[in-house]
């Protein structure tokens, strides 16, 4: 299959999984309050569904990487290495700030998720420009 067609297909597949995962995350987060009134069995099922779809999303991302050419793989590797390292270092520092009561609020996981997303986005854009 042509490289461009394959990439488009894999990107579409990843977008579908990501959308499904986002919807299932919203369902797991808000369903207990707005849909099934605290029923723990339904909450556990929603979380299991979220987990299963999340694994599908990860596998779709792996497939996208496998179908990429060598420069795209290098760009992704560098971006992911930076994101992983910075998330670990910044995440632990942020947690320590909370433990030492330097910051008046609790260190929430949502901060790390947003930081990770922004970091990966920035690293990918910068790396794309480096090899242009």
């Amino acid at each position: 299959m042509n490289q461009k067609v394959l990439k488009k297909k894999n990107l579409g597949r990843l977008a579908g999984w990501t959308l499904a995962w986002t919807v299932s995350t919203a369902l797991a987060a808000f369903g207990t309050k707005f849909l099934w009134d605290g029923n723990q069995t339904l909450s556990a099922l929603a979380i299991l569904l979220n987990l299963a779809i999340g694994i599908g999303m990860v596998l779709a991302n792996r497939r996208l990487l496998e179908g990429s050419d060598e420069l795209e793989k290098k760009i992704q590797l560098e971006s992911m290495a930076l994101t992983l390292g910075l998330t670990l270092v910044v995440g632990i520092a942020y947690s320590l700030l909370d433990t030492a009561n330097v910051i008046p609020w609790d260190a929430e996981i949502s901060f790390l998720v947003i930081f990770m997303g922004l970091c990966y986005l920035t690293a990918t854009v910068v790396n794309q420009k480096r090899y242009r």
Binding site: N2, Q3, K4, D69, E70, L71, E72, K74, Q128, R130, Y131, R132
Partner: peptide, 25 residues
């Protein structure tokens, strides 16, 4: 790029010496 099976960006980066291709490429 189409004949080699890589993206146009990859050929451009190789031409400019910014990226060394693998041996098969």
């Amino acid at each position: 790029a189409g004949a080699v099976g890589v993206s146009r960006q990859t050929i451009n980066a190789i031409e400019k010496g910014k990226f060394d291709p693998s041996l098969p490429t």
